[in-house]
Design a binder for these strands. Structure first.
Length: 207
DNA sequence: CGGCTTTGACCTGCGC
DNA sequence: GCGCAGGTCAAAGCCG
């Protein structure tokens, strides 16, 4: 199911996307372009009946194959196992790379769609809402959240899918510079690179 | 009273 | 330059 460079997940009523862009052209971020769409999400869990889902808006940014992205704990072992089986390591912390030719930091995004009555899922981090905006061609407003941990600039956007409001689309942007307050992470140290890699995690026993 | 949400205003980028 | 759309700010109000 998973292939390096483009991962798809079908996990009951939740679909996850980790889609590096610009690997061949190297211009994914700078041009703002991305693949316009691909088939993948299946609301009924049947991968034989993919629902076309435009991801261009959610994946304008290139996601480095060696990103320091730390996925939300909610994404479960499914994400970790699929990424790791594809040879993608998940270092903890680390520096943010720069957009070529600019001094702007390269943000990293990951989006997933899940069937949910509630728009806000408990991903273990504490978020503060800072904006709400109506989106063109969509009856549903988009909500903007920032990680409320001091010094952490991770943002997420939450909106309901225009064609099927029973699905919530959550887009994470940035890298947490701290671990989830509700999760215990287990890491391995790579002596060669000097980086620490997430090898597992679990919900804090105290919670 | 502190932290959070709400919401209108403002800023910025982009296309024409 | 102008208008539009997306993203962010910040004051006001709410709530525990």
């Amino acid at each position: 199911m998973a292939a390096v460079g483009e991962l798809q997940f079908h996990y009951s009523d939740m679909d996850l996307y980790f889609m590096p862009h610009g690997n061949s052209s190297g211009s994914g971020y700078e041009s703002g372009s991305a693949s316009s769409s691909f088939s993948g999400p299946t609301g009924d869990g049947n991968s034989d009946n993919p629902i076309p889902f435009d991801l261009s808006e959610y994946f304008r940014d290139e996601v480095s194959m060696h990103s320091s992205f730390l996925p939300p704990p909610y994404m479960d072992n499914c994400l970790f196992q699929a990424m790791q089986s594809s040879g993608i390591n998940l270092p903890v912390g680390g520096s943010v790379s720069r957009i070529p030719g600019t001094d702007k930091p390269r943000t990293e995004r990951i989006a997933f769609r899940m069937k949910s009555v509630a728009e806000i899922i408990d991903d273990g981090f504490k978020w503060r809402k800072y904006g709400k905006k109506s989106v063109k061609n969509s009856p549903n407003p988009r909500n903007y959240y920032k990680c409320s941990t001091e010094g952490c600039s991770v943002k997420k956007r939450v909106e309901r899918e225009k064609d099927d409001p029973s699905y919530v689309i959550t887009t994470y942007e940035g890298i947490h510079n701290h671990v989830s307050p509700s999760m215990v992470y287990y890491t391995n140290h790579d002596a060669e690179s000097g980086q620490y890699y997430v090898s597992g995690y679990q919900i804090s026993p105290g919670l």
